[in-house]
Design a protein around this nucleic acid. Sequence first.
RNA 1: UCGCGGGUAGUUCAACCGGUAGAACACCAGACUUUGAAUCUGGGGGUUGCAGGUUCGAGCCCUGCCCCGCGAGCCA
Length: 583
Amino acid sequence: MSHPDAPDAESTDFIREAIAADNQSGTFGQRVHTRFPPEPNGYLHIGHVKSIALNFGLAEEFDGKCNLRFDDTNPATERQEFAEGIQHDLAWLGFTPSGPTLYASDYFEQLYTWAESLVERGLAYVDDQDSETISTQRGGFGQPGVESPFRERSAEENLDLFRRMRAGEFDDGSRVLRAKIDMQAENMQLRDPIMYRIKRSTHYRTGDTWVIYPTYDWAHGQSDAIEGITHSLCTLEFMDHRALYDWYLQQLDLPFEKPEQIEFARLGLTHTPMSKRVFARLVEGGYVDGWDDPRMPTVRGMRRRGYPATALRAFVDRVGIARTNSTSEIELLESFVRDELNQTASRRMAVLHPLKVVITNWPADEVVLVEAANNPADPDAGTRQVPFTGELWIEQDDFKLEPPPKYYRLSPGREVRLRAGFYITATDVETDEAGNVTTVLCTYDPESEGGSTPDGRKVKATIHWVSAEHALDRTVYLYERLFSDPFPGEGGADPLDSLNPSSRETVAAKLEPALGDAAAGQVVQFERLGYFAVDMDNPSIFHRTVGLRDEWANIQKRNQAQAGKSKQNNQQGKQGKKKSEGA
RNA sequence: UCGCGGGUAGUUCAACCGGUAGAACACCAGACUUUGAAUCUGGGGGUUGCAGGUUCGAGCCCUGCCCCGCGAGCCA
């Protein structure tokens, strides 16, 4: 294939450019070594996928390496379960670390040794004040900080105190080790940041061997250095930490080029808070079934929902890397999911909201096996046989006693095609006392088997169906957005305020027999409805992954909006535009 | 209030370090169709935050202003 004029398919961004420049100048000797450093205090979510794809993608593109390192410096929140889950999710996404899994907690001893060396050189001191006092002394934006009365302790005293901190002689929170930098610095991160705190909490890996733990800032750059990381990528909120990152590394006087911290914007997604705190509340509050609930934006939730890993990766690739805070539309993610599934998912028929059809001229008890393509776009996907009988289920939406304009599905006197089956014409209905249609009586054209007639006449609609006698009864979960507001929590509101109360609808569906063979986790297309994933644990449960694009729904929506608008014109006036400002 | 970062179609990103803006998704229309899907074709959409300046020429450079984000955890 030759597309001489095709735009360069290679995605480029400021980070890739920076790396190319480093390679050009030989800064790291052509080496590219990144790392993905999650804290094991929750499961991976779609936001992490962006960072993962960036770090691992860079390593691959530049023929370098990418580590998986757990940033486990806070024993209070971390758990083995999360560390394992993250590794599992990472593998499912299709990424493989360049070496064994690494842990910041493995560097505790080295970090401690380095800290002592800073103490010895008068670059760090033990502060006996409580956190509130320290916080007050730090000053504020535009106001200088106040130096701690303990700032000028001798190196000997500091070393003694620091060793006794490690030995467990002091109470939690009673002392900290601080870097001695500059209480006047405009960058708050440089106002004598804390390096160690005393915290008696069992660490999921180191147990109780430590009572002092390094803070993120003290641990991160040094961990990068230990691993020979060249480009340490993190999100924008760490921008102010870069000066500190560099300061620590400078004091260590390492015999090789120091890693370079580069920040990029985290992923924002409409209708999707991207905070572990919110996720934990959803799980703990019982608003969802767990971290792997199909409505959760976690990797495991999306996997259960049926989102293919390739779609997730294609999505974050498309969003790209920039320094602009931005929020992508969730529709973009969904379009990648559909795009992938359209190519891979087998077609099946299922009726979600069943309405009985009786074919009055069908030979009693006759069963005809009709042949249906598994994927019309892919002949290699083969065909299957679907039993057709005189009693069928069709979708309630596919019949209207009084068809609205532009409606061309089944209605009295109208003929439609049953997909891969026969043409039927509605002749009559049966209703209950309330007047609701309970059964549609039809006649069929015996010459139309397979979906076409000798006279070649056209019908406007093709609808799906399931033989009542052969139908499988299954539970299908239909999902809507978990949060109805595109920007949950905007303006300081509680994100949970915009939880959609009907984010999951449970439906008793009728499925064609072939669906009985669907494998756990498999995703199929229910024709005309959407993609549905077989639950990974219970194969008789289906989750709607994503619906098909639905032009008819759009038409109806437009008509409604039109009607609503003309109604509104009469009573318009007040209601200032609601603009949301940060609280 | 101070510091840092950012502002290009509805959204997310491009635009060879000055040559007068493109793509994807979304939207609209048409073609095709045994999924109102998919596919194909076409279309509407931008005074590049605002105002000046430099220049033959500015989204790119300069000045001022506006708006948004982050920063005062012993969280990461």
